[in-house]
Design a binder for these strands. Structure first.
Lengths: 233, 233
DNA sequence: AAGTGGTCTAGACCACCTC
DNA sequence: AGGTGGTCTAGACCACTTG
């Protein structure tokens, strides 16, 4: 058969989704209770549950105890970003990977970073600037701050061998990650590093990761001109 | 108690995650089978299943039948983007919303759009350019193509009342959505519309939505200078 | 061929929230 | 206060994939 079993949870999900697509249920409408859908489509209630959770995860319906299930009135496009570490992304594209350490030092946190980390300015941080190269050309410029209160052993990492990016991701799992994406006109210094004209439009990803309530690192990753972040769902 | 029940699926998830964070299980390691974890933590196997699926969704572990569960060796940052309708986003920020229709016409698909849609160039498409304003200032410039084969009734929509964005999202649910994000230097015409200097760095989101295998719409949304897409997980 | 995760069921109880 | 979704269980069978 072309689709899945009508009584698998994917089958149930598809039938409900179909009714939303063909306007049997319209935005704002209340759907029957799980129990009744289960009876009608001849499956267990937990199977309806599974299907409904999937639809809720996709932002298609909204569920509330006692309130029931409604079709979301203000649909939201939901896309999942996968951000791999630079080396993996470059190697996946079939390019040779290398990284250059541009600068590295340790000191007290400047105000902007202290604020981002929620720490006092006396806190010690490491600052690392590195360039990730794909096939000999600049791919990502990484400007990173690491909280040495949270990651004291970072002081003794040899960044010639492993990038800070990779060392952290392998040794310091995080529990939370904030991501911001924006476009910026590159300044003269960074332009020279990236090999583009000053003022060129660059895609920038800024990430801050945390373990519990403690900040691990903040990184500003400036991507090569023309880079596209892609997602699908 | 401060955390959830140790035997709830969230509790199980947290205990497993904890063991990954404290390196009891390291990247690439194989975890015990669900059955054994269930026995050790004294819960049903399906509860372990639920916890494991959550960890797999977060990109922390990888599961294969017969292969077992391993800690993902190449951790990937996974962030979920929520892209609301322009009007909702602007109103949520407490600004007055308005939209201006810049241009609107119907014709055969130009090559780039035909290719994007996987259609022949003879296919009829609508082309709409509109500006979404927040508090009287340009917020998003929307350049949209709609496949009239898929959405014939779009011909008779009055775009003075509802934006194409909003009409589509309310009347044409989609089953798939591709998103691309990039930075671009704005051209002179668009710069005038957005009220910025030509060449300014702008964040652009391009989305194509599909219903089954049929294309609905492709939209290029150029955001105001300095706009930041934010996510958290 | 066999081991592992994936799914389904039926039933029970719980937690939350509207009515 | 009662109805609804959320979760848990125990057991069974299935599907995939590796050895």
């Amino acid at each position: 058969m072309s689709d899945l079993d009508r009584t698998s949870w994917q089958g149930i999900r598809d039938q409900i989704r179909e009714r939303i697509l063909d306007s049997t249920y319209r935005p704002g409408d209340k759907l029957p209770r799980d129990h009744d859908i289960a009876a009608e489509l001849e499956c267990a209630r937990s199977t309806v549950q599974r299907a409904m959770r999937s639809l809720a995860d996709d932002g298609i319906v909204e569920r509330k105890r006692k309130g029931g299930t409604i079709v979301k009135p203000d649909p939201v496009t939901r896309a999942v970003l996968n951000i791999p570490i630079a080396r993996i992304e470059i190697e996946n594209r079939g390019f040779d990977y290398r990284h250059h350490l541009i600068s590295q030092d340790i000191g007290a946190a400047p105000p902007a970073i202290a604020a981002q980390f929620g720490l006092s300015q006396a806190s010690p941080v490491a600052h690392v600037v590195a360039l990730h190269m794909a096939a000999g050309r600049p791919f990502v410029l990484e400007d990173r701050w690491i909280s040495l209160d949270t990651v004291p052993e970072f002081r003794s990492v040899d960044l010639a061998e492993t990038s800070a990016n990779e060392w952290l991701v392998r040794h310091r799992p995080y529990s939370r990650c904030d991501v911001q994406i924006h476009a910026t006109a590159i300044d003269a210094d960074d332009a020279q590093l990236m090999g583009v004209a000053p003022g060129a439009a660059m895609l920038v990803l800024e990430r801050t990761t945390w373990i519990g309530e403690k900040p691990i690192t903040h990184v500003k990753a400036t991507h090569a001109e023309g880079y596209r972040l892609m997602t699908s769902s």
